[in-house]
């Protein structure tokens, strides 16, 4: 009798623990969206924001302030591209939209697909930097030896802390390996 009771208790405990195990396995995966949301909120890892043209138009332009925006572009080891910004830097008024472009040339004799990943430094500035249009929103298809101009439209939020007078937008171009 006592042994049977003990067995059923053991079974109960074991089943509960199996749920914990399955739950924690799921939690490992849940950390992926949690991490992304945290990065969006805090601007960790220089992840930049996306806003619509309408929202961007509603921002008040700060006519008393200049912010220097510098551009860099690098190609990840695996990519066959020549990739660089069309201009090294521009001075912008916070709240006003600007359009710049990057140039990329496919150095391979075959079709390749690339994806640009943006990052903004310093980190505190990244959540005040938003794009209304960007070639980084989708992956880019290149014919063999094709050269492309790719535009970015961005706006710097006037709420950008006063201590920041210069920021760097950098893109890393990756070969996605798709055909």
């Amino acid at each position: 009798m006592e042994i049977l009771e003990r067995k059923s208790r053991t079974l109960q405990v074991s089943i509960k623990l199996v749920f914990v195990v399955v739950g924690m396995f799921g939690f490992g995966y849940l950390m992926v969206p949690i991490y992304n949301i945290l990065c969006d909120i805090t601007g960790l890892n220089g992840k930049t924001g996306i806003i619509s043209t309408v929202q961007a138009g509603e921002l008040v332009i700060d006519e008393d302030r200049w912010v220097n925006v510098e551009f860099t572009g690098t190609v990840n080891v695996s990519g066959p591209w020549d990739f660089k910004p069309g201009q090294d830097s521009i001075k912008v008024r916070p709240g006003k939209q600007y359009k710049i472009s990057y140039t990329a040339k496919n150095l391979a004799d075959r079709e390749v697909v690339g994806q640009a990943v943006p990052s903004v430094a310093p980190r505190v500035a990244s959540k005040y930097f938003s794009k209304t249009e960007c070639f980084c929103f989708t992956s880019q298809v290149f014919e063999a030896n094709e050269e492309k101009d790719m535009p970015v439209v961005f706006v710097v939020d006037p709420a950008l802390p006063k201590s920041v007078d210069s920021l760097v937008l950098s893109y890393t171009f990756f070969d996605t390996g798709e055909k």
């Binding site: 195990v21 399955v22 924690m24 396995f25 939690f27 490992g28 995966y29 950390m31 992926v32």
Partner: peptide, 14 residues
């Protein structure tokens, strides 16, 4: 162990 080994299993599965 039962709290963190499954998380590791998830990470290596990823």
């Amino acid at each position: 162990l039962i709290a963190v080994i499954p998380v590791f299993a998830g990470a290596v599965t990823m």
